[in-house]
Amino acid sequence: MEKRLLAALMWAMALVGGSVAAEPVYSFGVVPQQAAAESALRWTPLLRYLERRCGVALRFKTAPDIPEFERRLAQGEYDFAYMNPYHYVVLGRKQGYRAFAREKGVRLQGVLVVRKDSPIRDIHELDGLELAFPAPAAFAASVLPRMQLQQLGIAFTPHFVASHDSVYLSVVRGLYPAGGGVVRTLNSAPPDIRDQLRVLWRTDSYTPHPLVAHPRVAEAVRRALANALYAMDADPDAADILRNLSMAGWEAGKDEDWDDLRALPLDADMAPLGH
């Protein structure tokens, strides 16, 4: 009797489950500037906040490294994605990703960092040295500093590591005399790493990372997320979330905002620069 009752119950549950359409879960890809566990720790609270405000289900996604993130981006694997500007103007357009938000009130600027006790005080002292960078297409932390070092006539050998955090750790450990990063990830690096580093030089500044939506995402869903993001800096409940991301807030972003990058001689393959 119990077996028959259990079978009937399971059949009924399957019947009901099959008659109800599953709620869509939207993937939210984040460029791996930091280790996956660290990125998840910082971004998941934002996703939970947006779920509560918008009534949609979001799943955090990243990749083991930036090249793999680029591959997944080019395949359109993410419904929403926080990507670097180079990814947007060169790779994102192939899938029709549409920018709708960006970090509020900031410009994206790369930095070269050295150990605090390094004798290097001038950018030209890097001539002829081996330098650490994230992946070749990491825009502000890799593309910009390499491009501008070349423009300054400074020869260098680039070595590419897994993430911004890997650059900072490599410099602290003395594996490289200097490395590329950005102010936001430097500020959010572990204190025992950050406090051993000094900013040697800063690049020119550009429009920051876009938050984009894939064309398959319904306009109503995209608009709901956008409105929730734009209002975060005025919401006391969001203060800790933004602080955890080292952000002041979000503002509207439109495609032409990234025309400053399109004016640069960016190579779609972004072959490593250096000598």
Rank of each mutant, 00 (worst) to 15 (best):
D260P: 05
L91I: 15
A74L: 05
Y26E: 07
R262G: 02
L211H: 00
K94R: 12
A238M: 11
D127Q: 12
W11Q: 06
R243F: 00
M10C: 07
A224W: 06
L73M: 13
R98N: 04
I66E: 04
V171Y: 14
V182H: 13
P265S: 07
V106M: 13
V89N: 07
I66H: 05
E251H: 00
S170P: 02
D195Q: 14
P45K: 01
P24T: 02
A35F: 00
G105R: 06
F139S: 12
L6P: 05
E77G: 03
A57N: 08
W258Y: 15
A140T: 08
F156W: 12
L169D: 08
P190D: 06
Q75F: 09
R59L: 13
A178L: 11
I123L: 13
V90Q: 13
T44W: 00
A101V: 03
H214S: 11
R107Y: 04
V143T: 04
R93C: 12
F60T: 03
G128N: 11
S188C: 09
R223F: 13
F139A: 12
G174R: 11
E51W: 02
A218I: 03
A137C: 10
L229R: 05
M247D: 03
V143C: 02
E23D: 06
A74E: 04
D255V: 08
V199M: 08
R53L: 05
M1F: 07
Q151S: 11
I154A: 08
R216M: 14
G128I: 13
R194L: 02
L41F: 09
Q33A: 03
R4Y: 11
H159S: 07
A35C: 01
L91S: 13
F60L: 03
Q150F: 01
G249K: 07
A81E: 06
S170I: 01
P45T: 11
R194T: 02
A231N: 01
L225E: 05
Y78R: 05
L225C: 09
P134F: 04
H214V: 06
P236V: 06
D233P: 01
L46V: 12
V56K: 06
M83R: 07
G128Y: 00
A141N: 15
